[in-house]
Design a protein around this nucleic acid. Structure first.
Lengths: 236, 236
DNA sequence: TATAAGTTTTAGACGGGTCTAAACGCGGAC
DNA sequence: GTCCGCGTTTAGACCCGTCTAAAACTTATA
């Protein structure tokens, strides 16, 4: 059996691996999980013994296939819970993450199955993040890119918003930027700030009608946490 | 903060205190939680330091008011979860306990609040056990007694069934004995076995109709785990 | 009332998860 | 090509929750 802390490490390594493809550095994990580097070293040694990660001293770690499967299992729990809490327990878009972060380690397979069934096997969670399938097959790359990589004039649709920062999420939600929202990139400042026009079609049924189009400036790190796809592709 | 293990100890001490009123013995806790007595000793020492229990060496422990409040909080979580899982996630009467036993330590106060609201502040869980109120006031004694204490000829209504043993629960469920079921005590054997006639009105909407009255013999320990109230009092 | 039987506690060990302090190694700068 | 700095690992400590083995206590009994 794996402790919930071990699951957190695997989830963290998985997330960091998505961002860069290089082996994940000790310090990156330490920062992500808010522990000290020596703590990470000792933990990854244990994970290595269990063959959940491969490690090269002073270089970094990577998940083994088995480690990735565990990470996907936890991620599936997390995202199913986010969807469930939002749809059935009236949690708001932004407050769901913390609850799911704890519960993901403690629900049974039976619970997972029943929630998935009740939600009709959703493919994405409320933030737009893909939910790993029940067979835990690796998630395929999607066609999204960070908003910060887009150029002026492009019309895009919000696909995913990082769920790591509740305040940021609340801010974006208030600004009407949620998965499904259409954006037009108005300006990209040299220091990375992106100004967008917020278009119609916010996803969902909030009272965001009649607000008309608005401009919104987003600091670079916020823009990087928003993943979008080109508006034209939406037809598919 | 309290670990989930500490919460389990407090819950165990609470449950054992209900059964006897005497200070709870180390060995009783050890058996209840399936650990060794030395483990219990070291744990209750820690609980004593935190003023959650009062302890007299070689005698036993009792919950302080604070300890009882914690136990009631955990019990509230447990029983709300049992009710919730049964009503909203289609869990059967007998499989609910294990899931609730884990989740009770990990749901937030917010989750508790929302579940209670959704269920319209239920007073009992699916086993008939009273759910502590949100203010965690001590549970008042109810008017139930173990079926094993009843005499031949008495007509009673099932109020509560212990949720500690899933197989037993399944058995009783199959026999049509659930909270709300009317029973008549037919015979009490010298060795404690109780034979009852299972009457109409099973609680709920299962397909238990048309089965007619049946006789059912219950070993003494099973009969002791079923709490009943006199049928006449039901009018109130 | 002395002793045996049974329960409880003490002593000491271990793995998990974390820390701080100090030693180590890698890669860039000179 | 050597050295310095920063990131990483080693060393050693601590608390939690658990165990086994052995000592201490309580109680029932002879």
């Amino acid at each position: 059996m794996l402790s919930d802390v071990m699951e957190d490490y695997l989830k963290a390594i998985y997330a960091l691996q998505q961002e860069s493809d290089d082996p994940v550095a000790t310090s990156a994990i330490a920062e992500y999980l808010d522990v000290t580097p020596p703590t990470v070293t000792s933990m990854v040694e244990k994970l290595e013994e269990r063959e959940l990660v491969e490690r090269e001293k002073y270089k970094g770690v990577e998940l083994t296939d088995e480690g990735e499967t565990v990470a996907l299992e936890v991620l599936r729990h997390h995202r199913l819970l986010e969807a469930y809490l939002t749809e059935h327990l009236d949690y708001s878009w932004s407050e769901v993450h913390e609850e799911a972060d704890t519960l993901e380690h403690h629900i049974s397979e039976e619970f997972e199955r029943r929630v998935a069934e009740l939600l009709d096997d959703p493919e994405v969670d409320p933030h737009g993040d893909p939910i790993p399938s029940a067979d835990l097959a690796p998630i395929e790359d999607d066609d999204t890119t960070p908003l910060s990589d887009r150029d002026e004039g492009e019309a895009v649709v919000v696909a995913r918003v990082s769920d790591r920062d509740e305040a940021e999420l609340q801010y974006l939600s208030d600004a009407g930027i949620t998965p499904g929202t259409e954006l037009v990139v108005r300006d990209v400042a040299p220091f990375g700030m992106v100004t967008v026009g917020v278009g119609g079609e916010a996803s969902g049924d909030d009272e965001q009608k009649g607000r008309g189009e608005a401009e919104q400036s987003l600091p670079e790190d916020v823009a990087r946490s928003i993943r979008v796809r080109s508006a034209v592709e939406e037809v598919a």
